[in-house]
Design a protein around this nucleic acid. Structure first.
Lengths: 328, 328
DNA sequence: AACATTTTCGCAAAGGTTTGCGGAAATGTT
DNA sequence: AACATTTCCGCAAACCTTTGCGAAAATGTT
């Protein structure tokens, strides 16, 4: 419990605290001789600067906040991993908090970020966020907020998204190339920004092909997706099922397996995913890639720009790429 | 950028800083009248205590460190999610760092934890950790360390593990109940503490059944597992494949799907997992549960005990439970 | 030797909070 | 009214670091 401080070092060496402080950061004011003495002793005593004291004095925390509905998610975990990795390389630490899709907790978390004087916040909105008060307070305090995945509709904010429209278009193109007559499209929670964008874009792409049947359904989780798929398969004979996310895909796959169906023979499958789940199966599911990792790296570099003040609010997109498997 | 401080409140109200501080925490010394005045103004001004200042003064950080090889992992993500959730409820925040299985980064991360004066750290050893110096320094500073998953062999440390021996025994029992003649057992990196424990226990259980063929192999990742499985299936005809982890299972499943095999008819499958992956398939893979969530909750409550000083070093186990699917 | 310049260092304030102690004001007791 | 209590609040130090400014010491210049 014996923490070395600048004071301790200064007392031992019989010099002032400020000299020690300066020596440790190679300030030119300090002679090479004393500097070396200080550095050696600091090394020997395992001196490690008190982050709280530094932050209190400098008002610069080298700490970033990151909030997601839950860490335990195929997509967020890769996003987080990427952000943490890049942050570490730049000397930043990341404080990761979960909202559990609860707006109240979300507010508390933002408060925590503020209390810890984070230099910036990455935020994925909870499902039911309507009140942006907490985020406005961030702006008042000049703490940059970079939204990702589920982002607010409001303009003038920093947002990092995958190219939702394009990914849906890509999906539509692929589907329309084939001679499919009936398409079942399953989406997630309709409140999510990504759901809205993907759904709209897909519907739009199908408008020019009125002969093709487009069945659209929503499922809040994979179980619902599973049940809905069963119900739809009872009533219709879709040639292909499009899933807007891993969550949905999982439910669909269960139904297909339960019914002993085989893709792509009995029915084709197409999904949007980061690839983890699609690659678990054989044949691999064809998917349009949403790379949490790419999103994370982009978000971090954008955050760095924000912190350094050279970045007007803008929406950045990670391009959508088709990854062919054997399911279409 | 206008941060409210105790000083500002005190100046507006014409009272001392200490009175404001005390009023805000309902100290009995302060009259109800002033207390209310202070609280109201603090509310109006969105006062939010500066965590750095508090921590500097109180030497109590309400911050916990958590280090894993990578966040992006079926098991760790649930562990982290559980710890973060419980921590939040108790007013703690979690600083999550990844080692990337690099001992150098591991050391740096520990240093970061120290600089931020965390109250405790949860650590999963990197694959190649041999030097425990960083952790010893934690002990010198009276910062409790709770190890989990891949833990050091050394005694006298806090460790939270799943019941590795028991889970392997459970697996062996289940296998031996059936009329299997040949068993392929696939393990992960032999350096991992969990690998060692599981492998030893399984072998031990099979010693009393010398007529049954036990083929043991190691794979560092799922691709290796996939290849090894192919190779083994070419040469042998195991009745069942036992996988020590999700990572391994994934590789095995690919091979099985590639070969057009069906479980449990052509070959049986048994794994150790938190359930996420096994439940993706139909029939579900039978697995012995290692719940990252349970482990996380246990780890956190143990950490709380450590922080409060009422806990001698000990190894806690999360019980192993068999979850029947349709793969055996 | 007298002066100007450079090198090297220390003083002190600041950042925001907590807390032991002591003192003034209010209240109670005879 | 004189005293003892209780209630309420402020002073000041401490936590550890950074940094502007000024001053002493060393060096250079004539």
């Amino acid at each position: 419990m014996h923490n070395t401080t600048l004071k301790k070092i200064s007392e031992i060496l019989g010099i002032s605290i400020s000299t020690v402080s300066r020596a440790l950061k190679h300030h030119p004011d300090i002679s090479l001789k004393t500097r070396q003495k200080v550095i050696d002793l600091a090394e020997a005593l395992d001196y490690e600067p008190n982050a709280s004291a530094v932050q209190l004095r400098t008002r610069n925390s080298k700490l970033l906040g990151l909030m997601v509905p839950t860490i335990s998610n195929y997509f967020y975990e890769t996003f987080i991993a990427a952000v943490e990795e890049d942050a570490r390389k730049q000397g930043y630490s990341v404080m990761i908090l979960q909202s559990g899709n609860d707006p109240v907790i979300e507010l508390e978390n933002l408060k925590l970020f503020r209390q810890n004087r984070v230099s910036g916040v990455f935020a994925c909105l909870s499902l039911s966020t309507t009140d942006m008060k907490g985020f406005e307070r961030m702006r008042e305090l000049d703490i940059p907020v970079v939204f990702f995945d589920n982002v607010p509709e409001e303009d003038g904010l920093h947002k990092i998204c995958m190219a939702d429209e394009k990914s849906a278009q890509l999906a539509a193109e692929l589907i329309l190339q084939q001679p499919y007559q009936s398409v079942l499209a399953l989406f997630g929670n309709p409140q999510l920004s990504i759901t809205k964008k993907r759904e709209e874009a897909l519907k739009l792409a199908f408008q020019s092909h009125p002969k093709i049947e487009l069945l659209v359904e929503h499922a809040g989780n994979s179980e619902e997706a599973q049940n809905i798929t069963h119900a739809m398969l009872d009533k219709h004979q879709p040639d292909i099922i499009f899933c807007m996310s891993d969550e949905i895909l999982i439910g669909v796959l269960k139904t297909i397996q339960q019914r002993g169906l085989h893709y792509p023979d009995n029915i084709a499958l197409l999904t949007i995913s980061n690839g983890t789940i699609p690659k678990l199966f054989h044949p691999q599911i064809t998917y349009i890639e949403t790379s949490g990792e790419k999103l994370g790296r982009l978000a971090f570099s954008h955050m760095l720009n924000c912190i350094n003040g050279n970045s007007e609010a803008k929406e950045l997109l990670v391009d959508a790429v088709l990854v062919k498997g054997g399911s279409v």
